[in-house]
Lab assay of single mutants.
Amino acid sequence: YQDQEQRILKFLEELGEGKATTAHDLSGKLGTPKKEINRVLYSLAKKGKLQKEAGTPPLWKIAVS
């Protein structure tokens, strides 16, 4: 689980600052079920590491501290 968090954070960091992506996109790029990706995304957002942008589907990006 920790491993997934690292992979997602790394992927988003590599996208570049301010760039956002969807759970669907992450799921495809990382070869992980979207349900699992979503769980990790919401967990990271709760920890303040990610920012969720409203929309359908929601967009995710690295939180700027």
Rank of each mutant, 00 (worst) to 15 (best):
K47A: 12
Q2C: 07
E17I: 06
R7C: 05
K49H: 12
K47L: 07
G48L: 02
S43W: 07
L9P: 01
L41M: 03
L15D: 05
K47D: 11
L15R: 09
L26V: 05
T22G: 02
L12G: 01
K29M: 13
K10T: 08
G16E: 11
K49Q: 13
L15P: 02
G55N: 06
K52E: 03
G18E: 08
N38F: 02
S27N: 03
S43L: 12
G16D: 06
G16Q: 06
A23S: 08
P57Q: 05
T21V: 13
L44R: 00
K52Y: 07
G48Q: 06
F11P: 01
K49T: 09
K47M: 10
L30E: 01
W60R: 01
R39M: 08
K52F: 06
P58V: 10
P58W: 02
K46Y: 04
Y42Q: 12
H24V: 02
L44Y: 01
E36R: 13
A23N: 02
Q2D: 06
L30D: 01
Q2T: 14
S43V: 11
K35G: 12
T22V: 01
P58M: 04
G31K: 14
I8R: 00
F11C: 14
W60A: 01
L12K: 01
I62L: 14
F11D: 03
I8S: 01
K19P: 03
K47F: 03
H24I: 07
A20L: 07
L41T: 01
S43G: 14
I37Q: 01
K61E: 02
E53P: 03
G31M: 11
E13R: 10
K10S: 12
Q6Y: 09
P58S: 07
L50T: 06
G55Y: 03
K46P: 01
K47C: 07
L59S: 14
E36I: 15
K29I: 09
G55W: 02
F11S: 11
L41N: 00
K47I: 07
G48M: 03
G18T: 06
K19R: 15
G55C: 07
I37C: 08
D3Y: 09
Y42W: 08
E14G: 13
T32F: 09
V64R: 09
K61N: 04
K52H: 07
K49M: 15
K19C: 14
K35S: 11
I62G: 03
K52R: 14
F11I: 13
D25F: 15
Q6W: 07
G16A: 05
G55T: 10
I62R: 09
G16M: 03
L41F: 02
L30R: 00
K49R: 14
E13P: 01
T22Y: 02
Q6F: 06
G48K: 08
W60T: 02
H24R: 11
E14I: 06
Q6L: 12
P58L: 04
L30Q: 01
K29W: 08
A23R: 00
T21Q: 09
A20M: 14
E14P: 02
D25S: 08
Q51E: 15
P58C: 08
V40T: 11
T22S: 10
S43D: 10
P57D: 04
L59H: 14
T32S: 12
V64W: 05
Q51V: 15
V64N: 13
K10H: 09
G18D: 13
L9S: 02
G28E: 04
Y1A: 06
Q6I: 12
Y42E: 13
K10R: 13
K52M: 12
T21F: 14
F11A: 14
I37E: 01
K35M: 09
I37F: 01
E5Q: 07
L26R: 00
E13M: 08
L15T: 06
D25P: 00
G28K: 15
G28N: 15
K61V: 01
Y42F: 08
R7S: 08
E5H: 04
E14Q: 14
K34W: 08
L44N: 01
A54N: 14
A63N: 11
A63H: 10
E17P: 11
Y42N: 13
L50Q: 00
L15A: 10
L30F: 15
P57V: 05
Q2G: 06
I37D: 01
G31H: 15
K61H: 07
W60L: 00
W60P: 01
G31C: 12
D3N: 12
K19D: 08
W60H: 01
W60S: 02
W60I: 01
A63D: 08
I8P: 00
S65T: 13
A45W: 10
K61W: 02
P57A: 03
